[in-house]
């Protein structure tokens, strides 16, 4: 339950309501090891604690990176953090994306909105061992071109010969030459081998539900589809009870689940 103090070393405004903090520990080990998909509890003194997935590179454990959207009390205060400020960090918690186990597969990384942040460590991990994977396609949707997270990085990834990046927005002015339409629209455009493919999905609940339907239509098996869930999390230790979804504690049994495990619960209402 006791956080470790971390100093903010970099603040970066991503979008009007979204920002990235780079942190380094003030005490204890200088390296913070984590696996893609895991999250930390970030504590802002006097305001409280919030779960936040780690969005940095697992291969660079000396900097802890979190991309956060200011949507509430604590995240609102975190948005005012500047280099030199100190916050508390507990973690890492939760199950990771099965990055190593997916070696040899074709991959669809499908995400919307801020959902790209928890998947960025996966993209870094895959790019660090690109030869271990088959075709990799990133599908990303946002509300408008102005709401695209990590835009320059997306452009860099798009420029690579070994990645296909599809970006779509809900509506755009004519200077946007990319796709317009929901993210699930792009799923049939992928050129992966569905017999050997896996999908990693992170985004709002509706998006994930429809994305799974499209992927299954394409021929993917539900056990090859992984989703990351979001719930009220307070202790992150599987004790406080808030993150329950059926038999699961999302904080310790998740947040990453294979869809064959979580699907039946995911599709029930208000559980």
């Amino acid at each position: 339950m006791v956080p470790r103090p971390f100093r903010v070393v970099r603040y970066r405004r991503e979008l009007p309501d979204t920002f990235t903090l780079t942190l380094e520990p003030l005490a204890g080990p200088a390296e913070f090891f984590f696996q893609p998909g895991q999250f930390n509890m970030l504590y802002q003194m006097g305001a409280g604690e919030v779960p936040s997935s780690i969005s940095g590179a697992p291969g660079r454990p000396r900097e802890l990176v979190h991309t956060i959207r200011a949507v509430g009390n604590v995240t609102g205060v975190l948005q005012r953090c500047r280099p030199g400020d100190v916050i508390g960090v507990r973690g890492p918690f939760g199950t990771p994306w099965p990055v190593a186990a997916l070696a040899g597969r074709d991959l669809i990384i499908l995400t919307g909105g801020l959902g790209l942040a928890p998947l960025r460590p996966v993209i870094y991990a895959i790019l660090a061992r690109r030869q271990d994977y088959g075709a990799v396609e990133i599908i990303y949707g946002a509300r408008s071109p102005r709401d695209l997270l990590y835009r320059r990085e997306l452009e860099r990834w798009r420029g690579r010969f070994d990645l296909r990046v599809h970006v779509t927005v809900d509506s755009a002015s004519p200077d946007w030459h990319g796709n317009v339409g929901v993210v699930t629209n792009l799923i049939p455009r992928t050129r992966i081998d569905t017999c050997h493919a896996a999908a990693l999905i992170c985004g709002p609940g509706v998006m994930m539900r429809f994305a799974v339907q499209e992927l299954v239509k394409l021929g993917l098996q539900i056990q090859d589809i992984y989703v990351s869930l979001e719930r009220n999390m307070q202790c992150a230790l599987g004790l406080c009870g808030h993150c329950q979804l059926g038999p699961f504690f999302v904080c310790k049994d998740g947040p990453v689940f294979s869809y064959d495990r979580i699907g039946p619960w995911f599709e029930k209402r208000e559980v």
């Binding site: 979001e230 059926g246 208000e270 559980v271």
Partner: peptide, 28 residues
């Protein structure tokens, strides 16, 4: 507020909350 995440509650109805309690006790 037990099920609150930014933007709303996952179990807004009383039905869902009682169901959660009993289903947790006797099943989960």
């Amino acid at each position: 507020d037990h099920s609150y995440i930014h933007g709303g509650w996952l179990r807004p109805s009383r039905k869902a909350r009682y169901r959660q309690w009993l289903t947790h006790k006797l099943a989960a």
